[in-house]
Amino acid sequence: MNTSFGDWLRGVLAGHRLGRIIARRMGLLAAGMVLAVALSACTAARLAYNQAPTITYWWLDAYVDLDDAQSTQTRVALDQFFQWHRFNELPSYADLLRQWQALAPHDLTPAQACAQFEQARERIERAAEQTVEPFTRLALQLTPAQLEHLQRHQARGNEDFEKDFLRGDAEQRLKTRLKRATERSEMLYGTLNDEQRALLRDLLLGSPFDAQRTQAERLRRQADLLQTVRDAQAAPALAQQRLREHYARVNRSPTPGYDAYQRELVRQGCVQFSRLHNSTSSEQRAHAVRVLKGYEDDFRVLSAQR
C-alpha cells in the first residue's frame, strides 16, 4: 500500500502512522491534540488514551517550547478536547471498527475499502474543527523565538523523511518500505506467507507514491503554517479565519496537480488494500477480526469512562 491511504488505514488499525497523517492534515496544535489518539490502538490502549492529554502536551512542547502561561492554557485545552473526543468520537470509531469486523471475513472490493476510508476521514475532519479555537489562541501568543524553534523541529522531521524515503538506491528504499508495510500488515493479519510478501512488494512497486513530490508538499505545508501564524498575529480579528484557510490548504493543496496525485494515491491504495486482504487465509481474517474487536472494546470502555 502507499503512504496515503495505506499508511492511514494501517495506522488506524495498528496505531503507528495516524499521528503523522493527522499532523500533515491538521497542522501544529491540531496534530498535537489528536496525535495521542493513535495510541489508543496500542497494546495498552486504555491507559494510553487516558494519558493522552499529558502525552500530547509534551509532543506540543517539543515543537514550540511553551512558556509557563502557554503551558497552563494548553493543558486546559487538551483536557477539554479529549473530554469532547472521548464522549463524541470514540463511539463512532467503535461503530466503524464493528463494520470492519463484519467485512474482514470476506473478500473486499476497492470501492468497499474506499468507503471505509471516507468514513474515517470525515471523523478526523470533525475532530480537526474542534482544534481551531485553541490553536488560534496559541498561535497569537507564539514568539519569534518559538517560531524559530518550530522551524528547527520541522527541519529534523524533514531529515527523518529524507532518511526514510529519499536516501539510497531504489532497491534500498523499496526494501525499507516493504519491511514497514509487512510489519504493519502483520499486526492486523498475523504472519504473512512468502506469496503475500511478494504481492506486497509488487503492490509497492506499482504505487504512484513519489517521495520527492511528497517531501515538496511537506515543505510547502510547513512554510504555510509559519506564514499562517504570522498572518494571524498581524490581524488577530481574522485569526480563526486564517487558521481555517490553512486547514483547507492542507486538505486541498494549492500546488498544481497535487490534489490529483493525492486522489490517485487513495484510489490505488484502495485497490492495493483489497488485493492484499483478498490474498489472506480464513485464519488470517479471523486474526483480523479479533484485533479489530479488541480495538472496538477498548473504544467503548474508554467512551464510557467518566
Rank of each mutant, 00 (worst) to 15 (best):
A94F: 09
A288P: 09
D259V: 14
N193Q: 08
S274D: 10
V37L: 14
R25Y: 07
R123F: 09
V76M: 06
Q240H: 06
L9G: 00
T74Q: 07
D65I: 00
P110M: 11
T255N: 09
Q305P: 00
E133F: 04
Y93C: 08
G15S: 06
L78F: 09
Q130L: 07
T143I: 02
Q240E: 14
R244V: 10
Y63K: 13
P144L: 08
L66F: 05
P134C: 07
D164G: 01
G19C: 04
Q241A: 09
R173E: 04
L47Q: 13
L108M: 14
Q80N: 12
D231F: 03
A120N: 07
A31L: 02
S207L: 08
R290M: 06
A31G: 15
D65P: 02
R220Y: 15
A69P: 05
N251K: 13
E89Q: 15
D65S: 13
N50F: 04
L225K: 00
Q172N: 02
Q73R: 15
R213W: 12
P256C: 10
E159K: 12
P144W: 07
L66W: 01
R123M: 14
A248C: 05
E195N: 13
P256Y: 08
T280D: 01
W8Y: 15
D67T: 04
R75N: 06
A115G: 03
L178H: 09
R306K: 11
Y295G: 03
E122R: 14
A115N: 08
L238M: 08
P144A: 08
L238F: 07
D68R: 13
L203P: 00
R152Q: 11
A111P: 05
A237L: 12
L166M: 14
D202Q: 15
D297F: 04
A48V: 00
V12C: 07
M26G: 11
V229T: 14
F165K: 06
D160M: 11
R184K: 10
Q172I: 03
F161D: 05
A94E: 04
A104N: 07
Q119I: 08
F209A: 01
H287L: 10
Y57P: 00
M33T: 01
V271C: 10
Q141F: 05
L147N: 02
R218T: 02
L47I: 08
I21V: 15
Q83T: 15
E133I: 01
Q268H: 13
T109Q: 10
L166R: 14
R137G: 06
D164I: 02
A38H: 01
R230M: 09
A23M: 00
D194I: 06
F117N: 12
A38L: 02
T255F: 05
Q146F: 06
Q146T: 07
A113N: 04
Y63I: 02
L200C: 12
Q196G: 09
V301H: 08
G294N: 13
H277P: 06
Y258G: 02
Q305L: 10
W58R: 11
R25A: 13
L142K: 10
F161S: 04
D298A: 15
R24L: 03
